[in-house]
Amino acid sequence: MIKLSTAQLWVHDQDAALDFWTRKIGFEVREDVTVPEMGNFRWLTVGPVGQPDIAVVLMAIPGPPMIDAGTQGEIANLMGKGFAGTLFLTTEDCQASYEELSSRGVEFTEKPEERPYGIDCGFRDPSGNSVRLTQVRQMATV
């Protein structure tokens, strides 16, 4: 059986991303390891409290030789537009979560709104990644 364990978001600054995802969103650190043998590569993951089998890698954009400077710039450009990655989060009460996260300083790009699939809103992390927060409604089956 294949299971999802980890997703990745590109980030400009791992420390700023760590602060945002832990202090503002409420995720917990899963791993924070620096590997000297790989040029001090930092493997940094966070995840939702109570969901230990899922993690999000907060991945700094590597430079040469892993990624050429042109590609590095393209990734950064897409991040700035909110199109380098999207994370979809669910909640039992979208309005309450919106209010709580807003009080912690999360700046939303969209307020909670009724959709065919539930109540949905959006925000971006400090690197520009798009995040959707949804209170999912059971869809009718045909």
Rank of each mutant, 00 (worst) to 15 (best):
residue 71 T to R: 08
residue 91 T to N: 01
residue 104 R to G: 04
residue 68 D to Y: 07
residue 115 R to C: 12
residue 107 E to R: 11
residue 101 L to D: 00
residue 102 S to L: 11
residue 76 A to W: 01
residue 119 I to D: 02
residue 100 E to L: 14
residue 98 Y to A: 01
residue 76 A to I: 11
residue 71 T to P: 02
residue 82 G to V: 00
residue 113 E to H: 15
residue 83 F to H: 13
residue 91 T to D: 02
residue 109 T to I: 09
residue 51 Q to H: 13
residue 85 G to W: 00
residue 55 A to N: 08
residue 87 L to F: 05
residue 67 I to K: 02
residue 110 E to N: 12
residue 119 I to F: 09
residue 50 G to M: 12
residue 50 G to D: 13
residue 85 G to K: 00
residue 119 I to A: 08
residue 114 E to I: 13
residue 118 G to Q: 05
residue 56 V to Q: 03
residue 104 R to A: 07
residue 67 I to S: 03
residue 93 D to F: 04
residue 54 I to V: 15
residue 90 T to Y: 03
residue 109 T to R: 09
residue 85 G to A: 10
residue 68 D to C: 08
residue 117 Y to F: 15
residue 99 E to S: 10
residue 110 E to W: 11
residue 96 A to D: 08
residue 119 I to G: 05
residue 95 Q to E: 10
residue 58 L to W: 07
residue 73 G to A: 13
residue 115 R to P: 02
residue 76 A to E: 06
residue 89 L to Y: 00
residue 64 P to D: 14
residue 107 E to W: 08
residue 54 I to W: 14
residue 82 G to L: 00
residue 91 T to A: 03
residue 125 D to P: 04
residue 74 E to D: 14
residue 68 D to P: 03
residue 90 T to G: 04
residue 114 E to R: 10
residue 120 D to V: 12
residue 92 E to R: 04
residue 120 D to W: 11
residue 77 N to M: 13
residue 50 G to R: 10
residue 62 P to R: 02
residue 81 K to V: 14
residue 104 R to T: 08
residue 92 E to H: 07
residue 65 P to D: 07
residue 111 K to Y: 10
residue 81 K to W: 09
residue 92 E to F: 04
residue 71 T to Q: 10
residue 61 I to Q: 04
residue 75 I to A: 07
residue 101 L to A: 01
residue 110 E to I: 12
residue 86 T to A: 05
residue 52 P to M: 10
residue 120 D to S: 13
residue 118 G to C: 08
residue 64 P to T: 13
residue 67 I to F: 09
residue 69 A to D: 09
residue 100 E to F: 11
residue 68 D to K: 09
residue 61 I to L: 09
residue 54 I to G: 12
residue 97 S to Q: 08
residue 71 T to G: 09
residue 99 E to W: 06
residue 108 F to E: 03
residue 122 G to E: 09
residue 64 P to Y: 12
residue 107 E to T: 11
residue 100 E to P: 03
residue 104 R to W: 04
residue 76 A to C: 08
residue 103 S to W: 06
residue 67 I to Q: 03
residue 79 M to G: 00
residue 122 G to T: 00
residue 82 G to D: 03
residue 99 E to Q: 11
residue 58 L to F: 08
residue 54 I to H: 15
residue 50 G to N: 12
residue 56 V to E: 02
residue 78 L to C: 10
residue 121 C to W: 01
residue 83 F to L: 15
residue 122 G to A: 14
residue 97 S to K: 04
residue 102 S to A: 15
residue 88 F to H: 12
residue 116 P to E: 10
residue 104 R to L: 05
residue 77 N to Q: 14
residue 123 F to R: 01
residue 85 G to V: 01
residue 61 I to K: 06
